[in-house]
């Protein structure tokens, strides 16, 4: 039996030969992956279908650029991340504010977490939303998406050194903001 990546390549080939139903099959397979990326980026339920559709239409348009040396899912995933970043930036610009959408996903608290932990979680997410975009993108990709430094560098088109610096400075900026605003939760000294 063929593995998933080989099947994907077959579907891509068929699409490129004009079989649109093959692309429909790819949409079926990966819509949840793309939607999860958008959801993690705080894109609300109202917009998420728009964003996911846009990603697939973009993928269809650029399918001739896809190289079969890579997995289709990886290629699509990167496309989705870039689109989510662009979307949130565009949205922020349109709304004329420097925050991310307030609908940042709310993780369910695990058993045993206290009130303090819940408040801390809210504060961290709020600080992340207020962080400068170039720091937030890197923090998101590394910690939320779980990408490696070289993968983040590839997605954002930055040198690895810059990604490392932004990661460190972003974390530091978040900590500074949290410590200065909420010393009762995050301590007052280094």
């Amino acid at each position: 039996m063929e593995d998933r990546a080989t099947q994907d390549h077959g579907l891509v080939d068929s699409t490129l030969r004009g079989d649109r139903q093959a692309f429909g099959e790819l949409v079926e397979r990966y819509q949840r992956l793309v939607a999860s990326v958008a959801w993690r980026y705080g894109i609300g339920q109202m917009e998420i279908e728009d964003v996911v559709s846009e990603v697939f239409v973009k993928a269809y348009r650029n399918l001739h650029r896809f190289r079969p040396e890579h997995a289709f899912s990886t290629w699509l995933y990167r496309l989705a991340i870039n689109h989510a970043i662009d979307h949130t930036r565009r949205q922020r610009k349109e709304q004329g504010r420097t925050e991310m959408p307030q609908s940042l996903p709310d993780p369910a608290p695990t058993a045993g977490e206290g009130v303090e932990s819940g408040e801390r979680a809210t504060l961290v997410r709020s600080a992340l939303a207020k962080l400068k975009a170039h720091y937030r993108d890197v923090l998101f990709l590394v910690y939320v998406e779980g990408l490696k430094i070289e993968e983040v560098a590839g997605v954002l088109g930055l040198p690895q050194g810059t990604v490392k610096t932004r990661l460190m400075r972003g974390r530091e900026a978040m900590r500074r903001a949290l410590v200065s605003r909420h010393p009762e939760y995050f301590g007052g000294q280094r």
């Binding site: 949840r32 279908e49 923090l139 974390r171």
Partner: peptide, 25 residues
């Protein structure tokens, strides 16, 4: 550690179903 834990807790799959196949087609 709290910051990183909180960020990693944002990982996960979308909690509801979506279907965009028809729309994309």
């Amino acid at each position: 550690r709290w910051i990183i834990d909180e960020l990693t807790s944002l990982r996960g799959q979308i909690p509801y179903e979506i279907d965009v196949r028809r729309r994309v087609m």
